[in-house]
Write a protein that binds this DNA or RNA. Sequence first.
DNA 1: TGGCAATAAACCACACTCAA
DNA 2: TTGAGTGTGGTTTATTGCCA
Length: 225
Amino acid sequence: MGRKEDIERLYNLLELLEERVNGKRKLKNCDGYLNWPDQGIYFFFSNTEREETTQQRITRTGKSGDLWDRLYQHRGPLTGNYPGGGRHRASRFRLHIGEALIERDGLHSDFPEWGAGDSAVPETRDEEQLLEEQVSNYIRELPFLWINVNTAESRNYLERNLIALLSNFEKEAIDPRSSTWLGKYSPNEKIRKSGLWCVNDVHKKYDSDFLDELESHILKTTPVE
DNA sequence: TGGCAATAAACCACACTCAA
DNA sequence: TTGAGTGTGGTTTATTGCCA
């Protein structure tokens, strides 16, 4: 089977997953009180559709040994010192989106420290709060799905192959992103060309057999309540 | 109903792994 | 060695349950 057929199979498997978990969620409606699986893989979708279908396009996939903790890092806090914001230094997803917003809106002089270092002093965080809020607003509106994957070996294998399959980086573009996709403004070439908010593995080849393993995990995934 | 303790979740900074 | 990304562990905050 070719890459296009494998991508079709992947999206069909995700439709099955969506049925199993009673639909996609958005982070704006989620918290840690839901019974998330301890470990797993998540799929964020864009609100735009794939070519020739009504399916939403995958825009990022990632893994975690503590699923909600990772989703929380992407969502950002609702309360505390930075409500509605977040920490892009703890979430590359947030970092990439913020960089694209800076490029698109010409905000370099407003956020000169964005992405600099692993931590920031409160003064810098105060200055970045406005952009963190914009990033949070963007992420919290993205529909997402998740699967339960217990072993790190499986999570690494599935994530690597998912990204390699979906990435258009230096490959034939399947489901190419529109010119209005925010990632087109990313300073990172891998994001612009892959069509994903991912950098690792976008240039790799994938192993079709991973779809069989993905299906087995989907069939074991249950809804959160 | 209010006070207290226990527990869970939220939050954060830093450490660690892996690949290039 | 560096960058990307996740894992770990400590602290703070919120919630729950119990008792007077």
